[in-house]
Design a protein around this nucleic acid. Structure first.
Lengths: 351, 351
DNA sequence: GTGAAAGCGCTAACAG
DNA sequence: CTGTTAGCGCTTTCAC
């Protein structure tokens, strides 16, 4: 720790044998110093650590995990590192593993199914202690069935269709319900749901929650605007459709993502001069970090990303500890509403 | 590939020995089938692959890398996965390594020096082929000098103070120059530079570029507003300072980050009613993904993140290939200006 | 082409 | 407590 020397990069690493010889002990004692310090006399330990420092020894983890048959690293295959929701998941999982002394290594599959498969195999081959997978919305089955998956594996943001993996998901339906309910409670009755494609499971569930809320409210109506994606540009075209839509004008919009919400708001305000939230209130989804940062902060449904990461980590640790006989299950976490100016106007003061 | 069976998770993995026995060949032949296919007769190879499939064999990479003394994975220690600039770097590096058949594993140090040190050690112990480090702006030296770093290591977004590591950086000074130059060319003469703290190297360099541009322009003036950080809230307080600042009003603002720019814009528009860009034009920095997505898209200096990742990957591959004798160097990449509505108004149509 | 054998660096008994 | 030893699963000569 106090030693500031730096190894010449590329030099051969000293082995435990060399450390042991340098310290004048047997190799087994050297190993015990690292793994079972209580089994080693204080003075011996000091000597060994001194040698470790002096030689710049770094334990070879490939050898360690080969011999011990265990690993202390966890692999996380993330569908999209550019999405703050998944970054939150990673952060939550990392914290949970860190508390157990385990390390989280992340691979970015970048919405490419073959990268996802490739990194799963990398982690398999590395014999990590376990794998966390935040997969693409579609075609998970293909990815997982193509190759043998023999490490403990837990899904995040995806429910295993056949119950063969534990997983953590957010209650999308409830999120949609919350969003619509919020608008209805503000007195809005002519709602629009915008997003898509509807075949995406998450979108379909959010919509079903919206439908439930609308159904519960006499006099409330719902218009559907399906988009081909969930980005800001899709939001813009949804905005155009809304403007050109039938009378009477909607007074509340549930967007299936914050990006869609922002795109819609830009078009409604700029092209049509609609005031937000006076003329129309807008709720987004995801609590993307910029949703609070746009000029009109967007009310949104916040996904419990960090909690989901933590919960997934707990499930995986369970599976690692208890072995394959563990009871597989899916944990559902609740999202919550964050009301901002796009629905409640200036009454809500951005902190 | 065509086999849909799935291993019981947790079952013992078959070894090459078992595969070889199953295929009726010697273990050495099994290894050759995988590593030197040309040395194995076609029919034998087929048999071995069939056994691999049948048994669900997954090569143990710990054993492989221990025996071979080489690895095919690269470690990337990222200071902040939540920052799209660093995500771009990761993406660029990943692509470059992928082309060489290497895998990129990412660790998020999350702006915590001890996590950075911890993950560096994880990668060291794993004997990865090389390490890419996007460190904290400050105190790099401490992190790297505390522990022996013996794997090839290349820095991203940081220049090694003593030239002992290769690295890739963006030309911050030029970025600052571009931002100020843009405002000056639009006829703005009373500029403000907002951001901070100024002791951050990147901020200081951006400022120096701004100073140069202002210095080159007769009649142009510059006012400094130092913030304690680079988030949106810091931008808001900078906005307040600007409003309360001395007459005459500034007509152009260079913010040291997009977040600061957005915070400033929110305050100026909402609290003071200044029109952007009519009264005051604002340039941000970083091209954060939401900069283009806010209601008034923010002109910005775009960091060449992906290119930096690629370049860093190339440097690291060089170092891995040529060994420690390789000539260390720092590659500087140029940022570029993206003009959006916050400076050029509606003449620039957001696509 | 194929097979046998010697480690890679470490862990985990077990014997002193 | 300390030292010895037998592998972990794979790569890699080197004979056959």
């Amino acid at each position: 720790m106090t030693d500031l020397r730096r190894q010449q990069p590329g030099l051969a690493q000293p082995s435990m044998r060399e450390v042991a010889r340098h310290a004048g002990v047997a190799i087994g004692t050297g190993a015990n110093t690292l793994n079972n310090p209580e089994k080693v006399r204080e003075s011996t330990r000091q000597r060994v650590f001194a040698s470790i420092d002096a030689l710049g020894f770094v334990r070879n983890d490939a050898a360690r995990s080969l011999a011990a048959g265990t690993s202390t690293t966890i692999g996380l295959v993330l569908v999209d590192m550019g999405n703050s929701f998944f970054v939150d998941i990673a952060r939550g999982a990392e914290a949970a593993f860190r508390e157990r002394g385990m390390n989280l290594l992340i691979a970015n599959s970048d919405v490419a199914i073959e990268k996802q498969a490739g990194y799963l195999e990398v982690f398999e081959q590395a014999r990590v202690a376990g794998i966390l997978l935040a997969p693409l919305d579609t075609r998970l089955s293909g990815a997982l069935r193509t190759k043998a998956v023999s490490r403990p594996l837990v899904l995040v943001n995806y429910a295993s269709d056949d119950g063969s993996y534990s997983g953590v998901v957010a209650d999308e339906r409830h999120g949609g319900y919350l969003a619509a309910r919020h608008l209805l409670e503000l007195g809005r009755t002519r709602l629009v749901f915008a997003g898509g494609p509807f075949k995406l499971q998450a979108v379909a569930e959010r919509l079903s929650g919206v439908l439930q809320a609308v159904g519960e409210t006499p006099g409330a109506t719902l218009q559907l605007v399906e988009t081909t994606g969930m980005n800001i540009s899709h939001g813009r075209s949804a905005g155009v459709q809304i403007i050109e839509g039938s009378e009477p004008r909607p007074d509340g919009i549930v967007a299936a993502s914050d990006l869609v919400a922002i795109g819609i708001m830009q078009v409604l305000e700029r092209s049509a001069g609609w005031r937000i939230p006076a003329d129309v209130a807008v709720v987004g989804y995801d609590n993307n970090h910029f949703a609070s940062e746009s000029t009109t902060p967007v009310s949104t449904i916040s996904q419990p990303g960090e909690e989901m990461g933590r919960a997934a980590a707990e499930l995986l640790l369970e599976e690692i500890t208890e072995g394959p006989s563990v009871k597989r299950r899916t944990v559902t976490l609740q999202p919550h509403l964050i009301a901002r100016r796009s629905t409640v106007g200036d009454t809500e003061r951005p902190e």
